[in-house]
């Protein structure tokens, strides 16, 4: 008869085999922890739309992240080998300052009054979007909101 410890080990190995953590989960955690200032709200992934034409040249996928006071819908499309374009739409719309964190540095832009923004020619790798409280914007944020890192 199998003793408790052996059985629990088998349960442990079974879950590790059939439901393992995503391979890059620790990397993504560390990417977030690498932010200079941890005073922000971490957004939650709300919805993922499956990529359309996953094997074709026009691959695009859309994800929505939500925070208490806003949501952001992000569409990623390929713009070349290992290159991506990110189109974002903040709702409610507002001219907020948006940063894109990549392993190689930070890109910055400003959403238009409808909350739309874009980053072109983003290399493959982890990226994270940070939306900042911005003076003059109609959307009041009391601290930045940050998406979990996603792999492009």
């Amino acid at each position: 008869m199998t003793d408790d410890l052996t059985l629990l080990r088998a349960v442990h190995d079974m879950y590790d085999t059939l439901d393992p953590p995503p391979a890059d989960l620790a990397d993504r955690v560390l990417f977030t922890l690498g932010l200079e200032d941890l005073e922000f709200e971490l957004m939650r992934l709300q919805e993922t739309l499956q990529p359309v034409g996953a094997r074709g040249p026009e691959t695009a996928s859309t994800v929505t992240f939500s925070a208490e006071s806003l949501t952001v819908m992000v569409t990623v499309s390929d713009s070349g080998p290992q290159r991506h374009r990110i189109d974002g739409w903040i709702a409610p719309g507002g001219a907020l300052r948006v940063e894109l964190r990549t392993p190689r540095g930070v890109h910055e832009t400003q959403a238009d009054v409808d909350g739309r923004f874009a980053f072109a020619e983003v290399p493959s790798g982890l990226v994270q979007i940070m939306i900042h409280p911005t003076s003059g914007a109609t959307v009041p944020l009391h601290r930045p909101v940050v998406t979990p890192p996603v792999q492009l």
Binding site: L25, T32, L42, P148
Partner: peptide, 17 residues
């Protein structure tokens, strides 16, 4: 899986904060 990832991220942030 997506919600689980969120919780893991949140836990580490909570530790560091």
């Amino acid at each position: 899986r997506e919600s689980a990832e969120d919780v893991v991220q949140t836990t580490w942030l909570a530790l560091v904060r």
